[in-house]
Write a protein that binds this DNA or RNA. Structure first.
Lengths: 128, 128
DNA sequence: CAGGATCCGCTTGGATACTG
DNA sequence: CAGTATCCAAGCGGATCCTG
């Protein structure tokens, strides 16, 4: 990160931004985490994750694949079977993601508590 | 996370999702990181981050404030001065975010390398 | 300087239907 | 089953103008 020296921008153009933008995606981290135990099929991921459409899943998988984080393996069978798995590079992201989930287990209640005493016009999906 | 037992969805409805969605935002993590050294003014954040519009910054700040991660302090002066700082709760998120930046420093090149040999129709802003 | 209000283009993302 | 293509509504996000 090159730290932030007084006066200069420290956040733009640093590699950390790439990691942030990689996960600044509704589904990227969730999909990666879903693959953390081993190869999973397309349909399995749909059920596993819950709430994601096939379109978004495919789109997310393609993106992660392009970034070298996952690998796609299509079997020439009928009916077709396609499995996705983490690459060694992708596997290194599991720890940071896991830290986030750990954080949530510890501080999740505090966040929900804060949301209760919030104006509610900033947070789209609370009660509705 | 309650692990994932065979058969049931493991990702929906777990507190980890909240943390993911909290940071699954183009600017949330970046703003938090920008505040990690102490109170910063609105205008300073604009220059510090680089690329964010005032509208998005304000919006992001409001959201983080609603989640109890940052605190807003407006001084009754002329010209107006408003500073933002992490709450103790928000400060606990710095470590996980820092892990991501560390990951990027280590694996950033590998990701960029993978992007080079990618179809390029999946990754919006590479060369253009 | 901080930030609300408005307008508007563009992207996001779901639903559906179709291919292999 | 896995994936694409098309349509379309909703929201994001920038530019601009205005207030305190």
């Amino acid at each position: 990160m090159s730290g932030f020296g007084p006066g200069g921008p420290f956040l733009a153009d640093c590699p950390g931004r790439m990691a942030i933008e990689l996960l600044a995606d509704k589904w990227a981290a969730v999909v990666l985490y879903g693959l953390s135990r081993g190869p999973v099929r397309h349909g399995e991921l749909i059920e596993l994750i819950g709430g994601i459409s096939r379109k978004m899943l495919t789109q997310t998988l393609r993106r992660l694949e392009a970034h070298g984080l996952i690998r796609r393996h299509a079997y020439a069978e009928a009916p077709p079977r396609v499995e996705y798995e983490l690459t060694p590079l992708g596997a290194t992201l599991i720890d940071p993601i896991h830290m986030l989930t750990e954080w949530a287990r510890t501080n999740g209640d505090a966040v929900l508590d804060a949301l209760d005493s919030a104006p509610a016009d900033v947070v789209p999906s609370r009660d509705g």
